[in-house]
């Protein structure tokens, strides 16, 4: 459904994207990993046409999108949800109003928009806080409102820009759980920029490794992260050993998707909680 071909972007002397090429299928979850400043966030912004790239092509649903302008561009953006690292909620709107913003202004009838918004808030477990303002919420709650805002648009693809990076470690699980549940539904494709190795290993269908704006590895998570010989793969392996202990590696999701039950997969997600109605 999404094809990115030789995407290149420079900020002055610094190369942010260096011929990035990959594709994402319908309902597929792609984890993008790499050190800070390697161009992951720029890649997501470029996909939603929020930054102008120097060269390259993007196809979405089989249509080129780089030439889109005005209303056509806005329609394209509405098909893609974006979950920001810093949530980026509108401070003077409450949770419900933040979530309503997209559907209402996309032309959805107001009653339907409200229903969609409430469903999205319920999906992230925040319907009871619909009239709360961002300033009165915790970081995790704000991030879940950000997710609900993306979901309410009923997007075909959701871009996640390190959604747990700015959160207190105690609140990370709430967000990961929502992401995992969505990935499991397989109704929406997802590109997740993350440093959460367990999530990438157990939830993602594929992993793209980036370094200095270029893709240095791509494929099934276990293969890329533990089979790769590059410096990034080695560092990620070391990190996993230190953080999660030993070398017993969990199985990759794609490889054993058919063999493992949902219950098993859920157990392997560290500290995950099941609060969502699936």
């Amino acid at each position: 459904m999404l094809e990115v071909y030789k995407l290149t972007k420079r900020f002055g002397e610094r190369i942010a994207l260096d011929g990035v090429t990959f594709r994402v299928g319908r309902g597929e979850t792609l984890a993008v990993m790499g050190p800070s400043g390697c161009g992951k966030s720029t890649l997501l912004l470029a996909i939603q046409r929020l930054v102008r790239v120097d060269s390259g092509e993007i196809w979405f649903g089989g249509e080129p999108v780089m030439h889109l302008k005005g209303e056509m561009l806005r329609r394209y953006r509405r098909r893609i949800g974006f979950v920001f690292q810093r949530q980026q909620l509108v401070g003077h709107l409450d949770a419900l109003e933040n979530v309503l913003l997209g559907p209402v202004l996309a032309g959805t009838p107001e009653r339907k928009a409200r229903r969609l918004a409430e469903q999205a808030l319920e999906q992230v477990g925040l319907l009871s806080k619909a009239r709360d303002f961002p300033a009165t919420m915790s970081g995790g709650e704000r991030q879940r409102v950000g997710i609900a805002r993306a979901l309410a648009m009923q997007p075909e693809l959701i871009l996640w820009d390190e959604p747990t990076a700015a959160l207190d470690p105690m609140l990370v699980d709430d967000v990961i759980e929502v992401m995992t549940a969505l990935a499991k539904q397989r109704s929406t494709a997802m590109i997740v920029v993350t440093h959460e190795l367990p999530f990438a290993l157990q939830v993602a269908d594929r992993v793209v490794l980036m370094e200095r704006g270029a893709v240095v590895g791509s494929g099934p998570p276990r293969e890329v992260l533990f089979g790769g010989e590059g410096e990034i793969a080695r560092r990620l392996r070391r990190l996993y050993e230190v953080r999660y202990g030993g070398t017993s590696l969990p199985a990759g999701r794609r490889d054993d998707r058919t063999e493992r039950s949902d219950e098993e997969r859920r157990r392997t997600i560290p500290a995950g909680r099941s609060i969502l109605a699936m």
Partner: peptide, 9 residues
């Protein structure tokens, strides 16, 4: 930026 990402003009 959030508004732009939601397809707002």
């Amino acid at each position: 930026q959030a508004g732009l990402s939601l397809g707002l003009g």
